[in-house]
Design a protein around this nucleic acid. Structure first.
Length: 152
DNA sequence: GCCAACGTTGGC
DNA sequence: GCCAACGTTGGC
Protein backbone atom coordinates (compact mmCIF):
# COMPACT_ATOMS: atom_id res chain seq x y z
CA UNK A 1 0.00 0.00 0.00
CA UNK A 2 1.16 3.48 -0.83
CA UNK A 3 0.72 6.75 1.01
CA UNK A 4 -0.17 10.10 -0.48
CA UNK A 5 -0.98 13.68 0.36
CA UNK A 6 -3.56 15.84 -1.40
CA UNK A 7 -3.98 19.57 -0.94
CA UNK A 8 -7.17 21.49 -0.82
CA UNK A 9 -8.02 25.04 0.04
CA UNK A 10 -10.50 24.79 2.89
CA UNK A 11 -12.38 27.81 1.53
CA UNK A 12 -13.17 25.74 -1.57
CA UNK A 13 -13.30 22.23 -0.17
CA UNK A 14 -12.39 21.33 3.41
CA UNK A 15 -12.23 18.02 5.23
CA UNK A 16 -15.60 18.90 6.77
CA UNK A 17 -17.03 19.26 3.28
CA UNK A 18 -15.79 15.74 2.53
CA UNK A 19 -17.41 14.42 5.70
CA UNK A 20 -20.74 15.94 4.65
CA UNK A 21 -20.71 14.28 1.22
CA UNK A 22 -22.82 11.24 0.40
CA UNK A 23 -20.89 8.18 1.60
CA UNK A 24 -18.30 10.74 2.74
CA UNK A 25 -16.86 10.30 -0.74
CA UNK A 26 -15.85 12.86 -3.35
CA UNK A 27 -14.49 12.73 -6.87
CA UNK A 28 -11.09 14.41 -6.67
CA UNK A 29 -11.24 16.50 -9.84
CA UNK A 30 -9.42 19.49 -11.19
CA UNK A 31 -5.84 18.19 -11.17
CA UNK A 32 -4.24 20.00 -14.12
CA UNK A 33 -0.57 19.41 -13.52
CA UNK A 34 1.25 16.54 -15.19
CA UNK A 35 3.30 15.48 -12.19
CA UNK A 36 0.30 15.58 -9.90
CA UNK A 37 -1.70 13.66 -12.47
CA UNK A 38 1.00 11.01 -12.78
CA UNK A 39 0.87 10.57 -9.02
CA UNK A 40 -2.90 10.27 -9.23
CA UNK A 41 -2.56 7.51 -11.81
CA UNK A 42 -0.30 5.54 -9.48
CA UNK A 43 -2.93 5.45 -6.76
CA UNK A 44 -4.51 2.10 -5.93
CA UNK A 45 -7.75 1.27 -4.21
CA UNK A 46 -7.08 1.12 -0.48
CA UNK A 47 -4.19 3.60 -0.48
CA UNK A 48 -4.19 6.11 2.35
CA UNK A 49 -4.12 9.84 1.76
CA UNK A 50 -3.32 12.74 4.05
CA UNK A 51 -5.83 15.56 3.65
CA UNK A 52 -3.95 18.85 3.70
CA UNK A 53 -5.39 22.34 4.04
CA UNK A 54 -3.44 24.90 2.01
CA UNK A 55 -3.65 28.66 1.51
CA UNK A 56 -5.30 29.27 4.84
CA UNK A 57 -4.58 30.61 8.32
CA UNK A 58 -2.90 27.45 9.52
CA UNK A 59 -1.73 25.17 6.71
CA UNK A 60 -1.92 21.65 8.15
CA UNK A 61 -2.59 17.98 7.61
CA UNK A 62 -6.08 17.63 9.04
CA UNK A 63 -7.00 14.00 8.49
CA UNK A 64 -6.91 10.86 6.38
CA UNK A 65 -8.89 9.71 3.38
CA UNK A 66 -8.88 6.47 1.44
CA UNK A 67 -8.67 5.86 -2.30
CA UNK A 68 -11.86 4.00 -3.26
CA UNK A 69 -11.61 3.89 -7.07
CA UNK A 70 -8.80 3.53 -9.52
CA UNK A 71 -8.23 6.55 -11.74
CA UNK A 72 -10.73 7.40 -14.46
CA UNK A 73 -11.08 10.32 -16.92
CA UNK A 74 -11.91 13.68 -15.33
CA UNK A 75 -15.43 14.54 -16.53
CA UNK A 76 -14.90 18.24 -15.73
CA UNK A 77 -12.17 18.35 -18.39
CA UNK A 78 -14.63 17.41 -21.15
CA UNK A 79 -17.30 19.88 -20.06
CA UNK A 80 -17.00 23.21 -21.91
CA UNK A 81 -19.17 24.83 -19.23
CA UNK A 82 -16.69 23.89 -16.53
CA UNK A 83 -13.70 26.00 -15.52
CA UNK A 84 -11.50 22.91 -15.76
CA UNK A 85 -12.37 22.36 -19.41
CA UNK A 86 -9.45 21.34 -21.63
CA UNK A 87 -10.07 21.14 -25.41
CA UNK A 88 -7.18 18.69 -25.70
CA UNK A 89 -8.97 16.27 -23.42
CA UNK A 90 -11.69 13.90 -24.62
CA UNK A 91 -13.39 10.81 -23.29
CA UNK A 92 -11.80 8.69 -26.01
CA UNK A 93 -8.38 10.28 -25.50
CA UNK A 94 -8.33 11.36 -21.86
CA UNK A 95 -5.57 13.59 -20.62
CA UNK A 96 -6.71 14.31 -17.08
CA UNK A 97 -7.89 11.90 -14.44
CA UNK A 98 -9.60 11.70 -11.06
CA UNK A 99 -9.95 9.19 -8.25
CA UNK A 100 -12.67 9.00 -5.63
CA UNK A 101 -11.59 9.70 -2.07
CA UNK A 102 -13.49 8.61 1.00
CA UNK A 103 -13.15 10.19 4.42
CA UNK A 104 -11.50 7.97 6.99
CA UNK A 105 -10.36 10.05 9.94
CA UNK A 106 -10.21 13.63 11.12
CA UNK A 107 -7.39 14.42 13.52
CA UNK A 108 -8.31 15.86 16.91
CA UNK A 109 -5.09 17.79 16.58
CA UNK A 110 -4.16 18.91 13.04
CA UNK A 111 -0.51 18.64 12.10
CA UNK A 112 0.58 22.16 11.15
CA UNK A 113 3.09 22.80 8.42
CA UNK A 114 5.10 24.86 10.91
CA UNK A 115 5.50 21.78 13.13
CA UNK A 116 6.41 19.54 10.21
CA UNK A 117 9.19 21.95 9.28
CA UNK A 118 10.66 21.69 12.77
CA UNK A 119 11.00 17.90 12.75
CA UNK A 120 14.40 16.67 11.65
CA UNK A 121 12.75 13.28 10.97
CA UNK A 122 10.62 14.99 8.33
CA UNK A 123 13.28 17.17 6.72
CA UNK A 124 13.05 15.09 3.54
CA UNK A 125 9.27 15.02 3.26
CA UNK A 126 7.91 15.84 -0.19
CA UNK A 127 5.60 18.47 1.28
CA UNK A 128 8.48 20.81 2.06
CA UNK A 129 11.02 19.76 -0.57
CA UNK A 130 11.48 20.78 -4.18
CA UNK A 131 8.31 20.66 -6.25
CA UNK A 132 6.27 20.99 -3.10
CA UNK A 133 3.55 22.89 -4.91
CA UNK A 134 2.12 19.68 -6.32
CA UNK A 135 -1.45 19.09 -5.25
CA UNK A 136 -0.94 15.32 -5.20
CA UNK A 137 2.30 13.89 -3.87
CA UNK A 138 3.65 10.63 -2.47
CA UNK A 139 4.54 10.29 1.21
CA UNK A 140 7.19 7.84 2.39
CA UNK A 141 6.00 5.17 4.81
CA UNK A 142 8.38 6.33 7.53
CA UNK A 143 7.19 9.91 7.25
CA UNK A 144 3.58 8.75 7.25
CA UNK A 145 4.12 6.78 10.43
CA UNK A 146 5.99 9.58 12.17
CA UNK A 147 3.16 12.01 11.48
CA UNK A 148 0.49 9.52 12.51
CA UNK A 149 2.25 8.91 15.82
CA UNK A 150 2.02 12.62 16.51
CA UNK A 151 -1.54 13.14 15.34
CA UNK A 152 -3.65 11.02 17.69
C1' DG B 1 -0.65 41.72 -0.81
C1' DC B 2 4.05 40.17 -1.70
C1' DC B 3 7.02 37.23 -3.89
C1' DA B 4 9.78 32.85 -4.51
C1' DA B 5 9.55 28.79 -6.93
C1' DC B 6 7.91 26.53 -10.20
C1' DG B 7 5.25 25.06 -14.60
C1' DT B 8 3.56 26.36 -19.20
C1' DT B 9 3.44 28.78 -23.50
C1' DG B 10 5.01 30.30 -27.71
C1' DG B 11 8.26 32.83 -30.77
C1' DC B 12 12.36 31.95 -33.00
C1' DG C 1 15.18 22.83 -28.60
C1' DC C 2 16.04 27.23 -26.21
C1' DC C 3 14.47 30.62 -23.28
C1' DA C 4 11.83 34.87 -22.12
C1' DA C 5 7.48 36.03 -20.64
C1' DC C 6 3.77 34.88 -18.26
C1' DG C 7 0.62 32.36 -15.00
C1' DT C 8 -0.10 29.73 -10.72
C1' DT C 9 0.70 28.04 -6.14
C1' DG C 10 0.91 28.82 -1.57
C1' DG C 11 3.51 30.38 2.60
C1' DC C 12 4.14 34.38 5.03
Amino acid sequence: MQHWLVKSEPDSFSIDDLIRKKDQTEMWDGVRNYQARNNLKKMDIGDSVFFYHSSCKQPAIVGIAEVVTSHYPDPTASNPEHSGFDPKHSDSKPKWYVVDLKHKQKFNRPIPLSWIKQQSELSEISLISKGSRLSVMPIEASHWQYILDNAK
